[in-house]
Amino acid sequence: MHVLVTGAGGHLGRKLFDFLETRPEFTVSGLDIRPVDHPQIHMADFGGAPAWAEHFEDVDVIVHLAGDREPAASWESSIRNNMDATLALYHHAAARGVSRVVLASSNWIHGDKRFTDDQLNGQTPPGPVNAYGMSKLFCERTGEYFAKCRGLSVICLRIGWTQWTHDNQPGPHMAMGQWGQEMWLSDRDYLKGVLAAITARDVNFAAVNLMSNNRGMRWDISETKQLIGFEPEDGGSPSLNLQIRIKSWLCKVATFSLPRAFSRVFPDW
């Protein structure tokens, strides 16, 4: 099986690329916007001219990790590097006979649920709170269209927090308090989950959570287990010191109170 990894020089991309290279059942190639010191990782700007599509020839599965990954990404960047780029990738993948795209989606699709009690699964209504989250929702919905109308299998992984610091270990150093710690994803579970998505059978379209088995988390991974056979091996327990609890409470108050106060003062906005 020939797997192409986009964003292959990035944090998640290079981990996956190197992992797949060690497995004899795969041929692996990659694309990245920056030069990478590897003969099978080529330069490509998905927001530019689609010359990169030539690298899709004889590819079975594309793992699409490229894009602007920052939650604070601007609308301009989110549209160019996430929405337009992914739409073009789906189009050329379908046209060139690629069987599946595994999309790096995001927990920010449910960003509005941070301070609620909602269970987060495939049936939970989306509520992105920033341009980045909206761009990932767009990529999921267009992926569903290509699955239904163009015969391209699309699996969207709402990837948890795989850190590039602290040796990717969970703990109070993680931002966003309890919410951040509960979405932790170990390196081992990340690689195992993407591998499951690459090799899963009889999946036309799916959008599933990819987190480790963290205590108390609201992300439901039962669908991930059922649809692609992912079984996490790791898990963490949130460590909530006083500072984290105070910061989380202040953030919750600001989230729910300030918009209402603003609307009272400026009712026409």
Results as ranks from 00 to 15, higher is better:
Ala147Gln: 02
Val36Gln: 06
Arg96Gln: 09
Pro71Gln: 06
Arg100Asn: 14
His64Lys: 08
Glu233Asn: 03
Asn130Met: 09
His42Pro: 07
His11Val: 10
Arg188Val: 10
Arg260Ser: 07
Glu144Thr: 02
Glu182Tyr: 04
Ser105Pro: 03
Thr162Val: 14
Gly47Leu: 12
Thr165Phe: 09
Met183Glu: 07
Asn241Gln: 11
Phe262Ala: 08
Phe205Lys: 00
Pro128Gly: 11
Leu185Ala: 06
Leu4Tyr: 08
Ala73Ser: 09
His166Cys: 08
Gly127Asp: 06
Pro238Ser: 04
Arg114Met: 09
Ser239Thr: 15
His55Thr: 11
Gly67Val: 07
Cys149Met: 07
Phe17His: 11
Lys113Cys: 12
Met217Thr: 15
Leu137Thr: 13
Ala73Lys: 04
Asp189Gly: 13
Val154Phe: 11
Leu191Asp: 03
Gly229Glu: 03
Val265Glu: 01
Arg14Trp: 01
Glu140Val: 12
Asp187Tyr: 13
Asn130Pro: 00
Val63Ser: 02
Arg260Val: 11
Val36His: 09
Gly47His: 12
Ile41Asp: 05
Pro50Tyr: 12
Glu233Asp: 01
Leu103Val: 12
His166Asp: 06
Asp68Gly: 09
Gly97Pro: 04
Ser237Trp: 00
Thr255Leu: 00
Ala175Ser: 11
Ala104Lys: 04
Leu227Val: 15
Val129Pro: 01
Asn213Lys: 15
Gly9Pro: 11
Gly48Met: 08
Ile41Gln: 08
Thr224Ala: 11
Phe56Arg: 08
Ile246Gln: 11
Phe56Gly: 06
Asp45Trp: 12
Phe46Ala: 09
Asp84Val: 12
Leu227Tyr: 03
Leu4Glu: 08
Gly97Met: 07
Ser186Asp: 01
Glu233Phe: 10
Ser239Glu: 13
